[in-house]
């Protein structure tokens, strides 16, 4: 987690934060009635901007990744060059959905683990990489989303990855 926090801590413009009410067909079917009830869910979307040294300007779009919000995801991901995936090491399994979406979308990405005081320390980077089934080339950093410098470092790791892996015709 930390999407809203990270964008707020690095953005040089006042970050925008919106809450979208989505109506979704509940995945839970009432056994007795057999009807799917509809409920609304709030999805938070954030927007910010940061200029990096070297003249690259990042437009940051914060959005949760979950398969059931696929249409929203496709809209927001349109035109993006890469993704920074914020992963809470205390709840690694909660990130499988979003990593799946990012990979399906074909977005290059970097993983940033939140630094929480109670985050498990017994995981080695290799174990975390294996748990998330990451490619060896996928950047993996730790990040305190509340700290601008830490957040910028995570974004720089992603940008460096994008530069290293850009299509040959752009080199």
């Amino acid at each position: 987690m930390g999407k809203t926090t990270l964008i707020g801590s690095v953005s040089e413009i006042r970050p925008l934060h919106t809450e979208e009410q989505l109506t979704e067909a509940s995945a839970q079917v009432d056994d007795l009635a057999g009807v799917r009830d509809k409920s609304t869910t709030t999805v938070a979307i954030d927007f910010g901007r940061i200029s990096l040294p070297g003249g690259i300007v990042l437009y940051l779009f914060g959005t949760p990744g979950q398969e059931r919000f696929r249409p929203l995801w496709d809209d927001i991901a349109y035109g993006a060059l890469g993704a920074l995936v914020l992963v809470d090491a205390r709840r690694i399994d909660a990130s499988f959905d979003v990593l799946g979406l990012v990979e399906e979308t074909g977005l290059p990405y970097a993983v940033a683990f939140n630094t929480f005081p109670d985050a498990p320390r017994h995981h080695t980077p290799e174990q975390l990489r294996a748990a998330l089934d990451l490619e060896p080339a996928t950047p993996m950093v730790t990040c305190d989303a509340r700290e601008p410098n830490s957040s910028i470092d995570a974004l720089l790791a992603l940008v460096q990855h994008l530069i290293d892996h850009r299509p040959a015709e752009h080199r």
């Binding site: 964008i7 690259i56 959005t63 949760p64 990744g65």
Partner: peptide, 20 residues
């Protein structure tokens, strides 16, 4: 706005849907 559009980079900042 920067005067070169090629330097504008859209990035997603994403993660799990709010369990916390």
């Amino acid at each position: 706005l920067p005067d070169t559009a090629r330097d504008l980079v859209k990035i997603l900042v994403t993660g799990p849907f709010g369990w916390a």
